[in-house]
Design a binder for these strands. Structure first.
Lengths: 131, 131
DNA sequence: ATAGACCTTCCAACGATGGTAAGGTCAAGC
DNA sequence: GCTTGACCTTACCATCGTTGGAAGGTCTAT
């Protein structure tokens, strides 16, 4: 099948399939005489794997590791779990940080009258005039 | 004062000060005969405002709006509060999304033995073989 | 033969920041 | 006056993942 069909079947845009090939995340596709890329079912399977991992937010470089483990039928599940745990920890850290931002902004917004008067604790805080 | 001092006083790197000038977030600095940029206290104040807003995660384009409101002494606080509320809602959405990712990964990791055996629900899910 | 759907490569952009290179300026010390 | 070193200038390149476009080649059906 050509790249368009592989794209539709995997959920990965043709653009991104070429990109993944470019950065070596997937092997170079075989080509027809015309230069068109050709794919078979296992290729689509791998693309679906990548698509799902991206949906889960794994950065591409981590997907490289996941693919390596996926291809190794004898790998210990310990290694996969470790990668997942690392990523979970990163997510936790980012969530905590964003919750902090949200809380700070909420406090400022709560203290802001939000009426037609110009006084506003939000801008006041941003201006750093309280320090 | 020169850009280095303005940078140290505001917490914004010299690099970013030039960038902000480039994208029109701040007005073009006056120059010495040598071409060196010159700053005065109100400039530093504005840079601190930007710095704090970036710390709070405001994207630069939103800071543009905030600066406009900040410069308008007669603006109703309602407008500022509205901007903040929008950003808070975006934060909430992002937090919720990341929590979803984290929970999904946690469930998968919990179901993974994490031992030397190769079976692993994490890769199994990524492969989409359950669908 | 021609239309139109598909494919190819290459280039640019996004947002915010860091880095580097090649060069100009300025103040202090000798 | 000359050198040193800290500071400044512009102009690129890289990041990360993705999208868009341009200019052109290929295939299929009419």
């Amino acid at each position: 099948m050509q790249i368009g069909e592989a794209s539709a079947a995997s959920g990965v845009s043709a653009k991104m399939i070429r990109y993944y090939e470019d950065i070596g995340l997937i092997p170079s596709a075989t080509r027809k005489d015309s230069g068109y890329r050709l794919y078979v079912e296992p290729d689509v399977h791998r693309l679906r794997f990548i698509h799902r991992a991206r949906e889960l937010g794994f950065p591409v470089e981590r997907i490289r590791d996941l693919l390596r483990l996926w291809n190794d039928r004898k790998r210990p599940s310990r290694e996969v779990k470790k990668l997942a745990a690392q990523y979970i920890a990163e997510l936790e850290a980012q969530i905590t940080r964003m919750q902090g931002l949200r809380d700070t902004l909420k406090h400022l917004a709560d203290a802001c009258d939000g009426d037609s008067r110009p006084h506003c604790p939000i801008l006041h805080d941003l201006a750093g005039t309280h320090k």
